[in-house]
Write a protein that binds this DNA or RNA. Structure first.
Lengths: 214, 214
DNA sequence: TAGCTTTTGAGAGTTACTGTCAGAAGACAG
DNA sequence: CTGTCTTCTGACAGTAACTCTCAAAAGCTA
């Protein structure tokens, strides 16, 4: 069994948890510590030498673990950067929405809501991650693939609520569009150093979707 | 200099050309032949054993070239599958649109137009490719990244026409959404074996974007 | 403390990909 | 059609991201 379980837990999830869950066995605490050490070492090296120029061996050495241990904590080098913790948050957020709200609004809120939370807690880290996202093709590709998974989950949720098929064209279209638009807004925000108000950027983004002026 | 040049030419482009350009030096014809041989061998092995289970060495052996030669023709294994020939076609198509047409309509046509052409000419190959796209994460990731590049190009074109900044949130949003929606429709089409009418699927897709019923 | 489970490091192997180099093969001039 | 010049090719050696196996170390439980 890999570390990081149970049931399914990824990087940022573990770290959030770490702050709350004090009474944990020594083993668990050590794992958390190791995970953090690897992460920290990696990001340090990345910002010094760049992502591609940094080898896993170097990261392992800097974190004072063996290369094998690295792969026990992160299945791939990319996984260091990618975090996929929004999904459960989004699900909760979506389910808390009134059932008679316009679907597109629910989706939008379900996506932006957790974003706000995460951003409030880990602004700097998110910015750094987005920077890597922009600079490193492998990471961009990987993140896009993750986004697709998120989309599938959202489709399932919408299907539950509407009765429409989750793999039908209508829902998929809707979700794909909302996802694309939000992601574009977040990227834009990150590109400009996170100085703008993300909230209003999101508004602008969604508005220009419907805007017939264009 | 890599094969496949000049100026910039990718897989499907070379193959289309091959049918037309008869008077080509022996060298060029040989290159084309080699390229096709590698492709064919690869797709054959892929459908027998799957993508990941097929090594580059196997492909090279089956195509009767050395592994080094493989990489001279295709920079990565993924490049065998990905084709990026739509971009120039889309650019032409977009420029041929009347300048006073609603922007979103121009974009939409610029994207669906070349699609029709390619589909008419190479339906089976497109289907096969989409199948790999769905099944192989690495390919999906790669294709998504390519799509992003396409988006950047579209933004530049739109910027030219509207005077808006190409990296502004408005254009990026618009393009991202249209791209996401079309891609979703094409995937849907491919998933169902290409039996549906792609044209009307695209209509449905774009309609459910604006549909307030959802 | 003794015994069980989990975590760890060492090491060997696979695969995608890069770079170099010498020789083979098409192009081209005289 | 011969010699030269350019391009293409295969052999080879290397790197880096993974994967697997196994025995030792460390935490847990009684």
């Amino acid at each position: 069994m890999t570390p990081g379980n149970p049931p399914t837990r990824t990087a940022a999830g573990a770290e959030l948890e770490e702050r709350l869950a004090a009474p944990l066995g020594l083993r668990e605490r050590k794992k958390l510590k190791t995970r953090r050490a690897i992460r920290a070492a990696a990001f340090g090296l990345f910002s010094e030498q760049g992502y591609e120029a940094t080898t896993v061996d170097q990261i392992a050495a800097a974190a004072e673990v063996s290369p094998s241990t690295f792969f026990r904590y992160f299945p791939t080098k990319e996984d260091l950067v990618i975090s996929d913790d929004y999904d459960p948050l989004m699900e909760v957020s979506f389910r808390s929405r009134p059932a008679d709200e316009p679907l597109i609004e629910s989706v939008r809120q379900a996506m932006t809501d957790p974003l706000r939370q995460v951003l409030a807690a880990e602004r700097e880290e998110v910015l750094l991650r987005m920077q890597l996202y922009r600079a490193v093709p492998a990471i961009r590709a990987r993140a896009l693939a993750e986004m697709q998974r998120t989309g599938e989950m959202m489709c399932r949720l919408l299907a539950e609520r509407t009765g429409l098929p989750a793999d039908g064209l209508e829902l998929r279209t809707l979700v794909a569009a909302v996802l694309a638009v939000s992601s574009e807004a977040v990227q834009y925000w990150a590109e400009r150093g996170g100085h703008d108000d993300l909230e209003s950027l999101l508004n602008t983004a969604f508005r220009s979707l419907g805007s017939p002026g264009l």
